[in-house]
């Protein structure tokens, strides 16, 4: 599989709520095996874009392809990508009536009803372990977990079926810097070891500098640039200059370059 192959192709997407246009003529390509970061100010429709791509929301116009399959427009409603994509929602969206282990096993049981209890438990255990949790969390309820642990469980659930693309909505939001750094490492190791493509909405500049191969900037209702970070930083656009040129952007960049020198 060449690394230049597109796994997600979005063309001319138009999203509108009432009279409020969120996206107009939006194009986006995501390549196989890359970590792409989506940034943009509040209200520029990052989450709407994610929901549109995975098919949770129908756009007013445009075409969306994932792994060569048509998500929209899809007249036959026959596209079944549920075991090819994993989705991590902002607050985890764990099923509150199930234990952690049952949460991770839920997609396994849904897509492979013939699976034995033992195998499902083993797979769930491994996914939890891959997400950096130990097996004792398996019998806890989601409401007993901290925010960071809930995100890890949600990640384990998103990976239950070995998807080829992971969609992450602000994975490091609400985590402490140490937890966020560990989550970043986890995401990179998943990509390196399992060959995942990762589509990540983030406000965390550290994550952007450390994880992302390319960064797509949402502004003026479309993707203004989708390129490696070094190019994006130099791009002439007011919002981008404010974003990366601000004190936090410079701090994150400084931290990254000093780490590279070391």
């Amino acid at each position: 599989m060449s690394t230049q192959e597109n796994v997600i192709t979005v063309r001319g997407v138009h999203n509108q709520f009432g009279s409020h246009v969120v996206h107009h003529d939006l194009d986006l390509d995501v390549r196989s095996g890359e970590i792409i970061g989506i940034v943009g100010g509040s209200g520029t429709g990052k989450s709407v874009l994610l929901r549109t791509i995975v098919g949770l929301r129908k756009p007013q116009a445009g075409t969306i392809n994932i792994l060569g399959k048509e998500i929209f427009p899809n007249e036959h409603h026959d596209t079944d990508l549920n075991d090819e994509i994993g989705l991590l929602f902002q607050d985890g969206a764990l099923f509150s009536s199930m234990t952690v282990a049952e949460n991770v096993m839920a997609p396994l049981r849904e897509h492979h009803p013939e699976i034995s209890d033992k195998l499902a438990e083993e797979i769930a255990g491994m996914k939890l372990s891959l997400s950096g949790l130990d097996e004792s969390v398996g019998m806890k309820m989601p409401s007993d977990l901290s925010g960071g642990m809930r995100k890890r469980v949600a990640l384990a659930r998103a990976m239950a079926l070995d998807p080829r693309i992971l969609f992450l909505d602000e994975p490091t939001a609400g985590l402490d810097p140490i937890g966020a750094a560990k989550f970043d490492e986890l995401i990179i190791s998943l990509r390196d070891n399992l060959g995942l493509t990762i589509f990540m909405i983030t406000h965390d500049l550290d994550s952007l500098y450390r994880d992302c191969d390319r960064v797509a900037v949402l502004a003026d209702k479309h993707v203004v640039i989708n390129a490696p970070l070094s190019e994006v930083e130099r791009f002439d656009h007011d919002w981008i200059q404010d974003y990366f040129g601000g004190p936090r952007g410079r701090a994150a960049e400084g931290a990254m370059s000093s780490r590279l020198e070391a």
Partner: peptide, 21 residues
């Protein structure tokens, strides 16, 4: 080569989790 990483990952994460107390 690319299966080696998976097997190594599996070796270090081989646990079965308890579902219910």
């Amino acid at each position: 080569q690319h299966h080696k990483v998976l097997l190594e990952q599996a070796a270090s994460n081989l646990i079965s989790c308890e579902v219910h107390p």
